[in-house]
């Protein structure tokens, strides 16, 4: 016979339900029902009336329109995914490096940290979108000769194209490097939370492990790969996870297109646009998480 928990266990469990039941109610009302509704919108023709949203079921017509009638959608999707894959490794590596530096003890550390957590406060907001759009406006102004002085812009903190041009590289490679470098510099702005997560994670590594390493006489390089990285394993996973979600929501061309459609009250197309993208992203996250767990985490723990 199976042993049933008794006494305090049962009471505790009951209290646990009391803690979480409101949350479950919230999830059902504000997440699961809207998700189902969103699928329905994607499959129907919506019309905003004073009484509310009218939906007529039309099957997969919205999806057919998106995929078959023009190449816009597939292009946007490809663009979003390629930016996801180029940004993700850079963000993870950069934020880890910066966190390691900020975690060392040196004069002016508080000041450096204060600057590096600045993106947490003002990054990922309307301000950044505004600034990058300004630099585009400036580009237009410059070409029309309106404001020659304002060559400085947010997007090109350092003018890489000039530097690369001096190196006399083949044109394609030069362009590739320029793009990659300026992209990297923009990505520093999206590292805020990630640096923070890494710094917090670094605090949990017990000092004894490093001491053991020092007694054994390992180099800094080995210390990094055999102590720090394995101990940060789960934090790295969290950072990857968070970065994908953030890139998916905020920095993707497709989502901003869908948002503008939403603001124009075209709900069905916007839902239809988001769903395939959403599902693909989830599949990618699942694959990354599973591969990472199987290949690395299991070995480290």
């Amino acid at each position: 016979m199976k042993k049933r928990p008794q006494g305090i266990e049962v009471i505790k469990r009951r209290y646990g339900y009391m803690f979480v039941i409101p949350w479950i109610v919230g999830i059902i009302i504000f997440v699961i029902v809207p998700l189902i509704n969103s699928v329905i919108y994607g499959l129907s023709d919506t019309n905003m009336t004073p009484q509310g949203l009218e939906t007529h079921f039309i099957g997969f017509e919205n999806y057919y329109k998106l995929f078959a009638q023009s190449a816009d959608y597939t292009n946007l999707m490809a663009e979003s995914f390629s930016s996801l894959f180029t940004s993700l490794p850079i963000i993870v590596a950069l934020s880890m490096m910066l966190a390691l530096i900020l975690n060392q003890k040196f004069a002016g550390r508080t000041f450096a940290r204060a600057i590096f957590f600045l993106p947490v406060i003002i990054g990922s907001s309307v301000v950044m979108t505004k600034l990058s759009s300004f630099s585009m406006q400036q580009g237009i102004m410059e070409t029309s000769g309106m404001a020659a002085s304002q060559t400085s812009s947010y997007m090109n903190v350092i003018n890489f194209s000039e530097l690369i041009a001096k190196l006399n590289l083949p044109e394609n490679i030069g362009k590739l490097i320029t793009d990659w470098l300026s992209n990297t510099f923009n990505l520093i702005w999206s590292c805020g939370i990630q640096i923070l997560l890494f710094v917090a994670g670094l605090q949990t590594i017990p000092e004894q492990l490093y001491e053991v390493g020092r007694v054994e006489g390992i180099s800094k390089w080995e210390e990094f790969w055999f102590v720090t990285v394995p101990m940060l394993g789960r934090v790295i996973l969290l950072v990857i996870f968070y970065t994908i979600v953030e890139l998916f929501v905020e920095k993707s061309a497709l989502v901003s297109k869908a948002t503008s459609l939403l603001l124009q009250q075209d709900y069905s197309t916007s839902s239809a646009m988001l769903w395939p993208y959403f599902i693909f992203t989830e599949i990618i996250i699942a694959i990354i998480v599973i591969v990472y767990k199987k290949l690395l985490l299991n070995r480290w723990e």
């Binding site: 999830i27 029902v33 949203l53 988001l274």
Partner: peptide, 20 residues
């Protein structure tokens, strides 16, 4: 549920929530 609410972006939910 926790993973679900981390993953699902607001943009997917916002319109159904308004009708709700």
């Amino acid at each position: 549920f926790l993973i679900l609410i981390i993953l699902v972006p607001d943009i997917v939910l916002i319109m159904p929530r308004i009708t709700n």
